[in-house]
């Protein structure tokens, strides 16, 4: 067993345990935090696969931004476990189907020899000065530029839709205008009145 294997098994163990914890933990905050842990260990695994750009982006986007907002929401929720369990049997067939698909996929990976995994050779290890980031950037902006732009537009539409759905114009609302407040001058607000000092009796 080499050093790299040791690192792999460490990350893999932590990933499996934390991913199990996400679905078994009763406290939703713990679930969210364990999900963060599994993202970080997953990034570690990707680093071992020489995908450093994707690994760091995973940490930057999912851990640094998405999960922060998730945690933000989860911490403010008043979770009632009984209400959460209500729809369990109604949704059970759907969940079971998903689980079945997952198990099949896992089986296909684990028994890769039977499904012709050997025909796909292992990619050769890259030199130390090979830039993953540059390679990805070249692909995204040349070969896959339409797919990339399409994804960007879909995200933009989703963003605009989310804002449009929650934006309400209320007539009775009063809101300050910070731009105006910041631009205020001293002369507009105060008046200095010259006064002779009082005489001491």
């Amino acid at each position: 067993m080499s050093f790299q294997d040791l690192v792999f098994y460490f990350f893999a163990t932590v990933l499996v345990i934390s991913a199990l914890g996400v679905i078994t933990s009763r406290n939703p905050v713990y679930s969210a935090l364990l999900l963060v842990l599994s993202f970080v260990t997953c990034a570690g695994l990707w680093l071992l696969l020489e995908a450093e750009f994707l690994a760091i982006t995973l940490v930057l986007v999912y851990v640094g931004a998405v999960m922060v907002l998730f945690l933000f929401v989860v911490m403010m929720l008043d979770i009632n476990l009984d209400r959460l369990r209500e729809g369990f049997w109604k949704w059970f067939p759907f969940g079971a189907l998903l689980a079945l698909i997952l198990v099949t996929q896992m089986a296909m990976v684990l028994m890769g020899g039977e499904f012709g995994l050997n025909e796909m050779p292992r990619p050769p290890a890259q030199a130390a000065d090979y830039s993953n980031t540059k390679a990805l950037g070249l692909l995204i902006y040349t070969e896959y530029v339409y797919a990339f732009e399409l994804a960007a537009v879909i995200l933009l539409v989703a963003m605009v839709a989310a804002i449009a759905l929650t934006l309400r114009h209320r007539a009775d609302k009063r809101s300050p205008n910070p731009a105006k407040q910041v631009a205020v001058n001293r002369e507009d607000r105060i008046r200095i009145v010259p006064m002779a000092s009082e005489k001491k009796d």
């Binding site: 982006t57 930057l60 000065d129």
Partner: peptide
């Protein structure tokens, strides 16, 4: 001396927020 150094720093600094959120909760 890694190629994605700046990205790594951004990722690390963005993780610092967890301590604050967890402390508050």
């Amino acid at each position: 001396d890694i190629n994605a150094g700046l990205l790594y720093i951004l990722a690390m600094t963005s993780m610092g927020i967890y301590g604050v959120i967890i402390a508050g909760w």
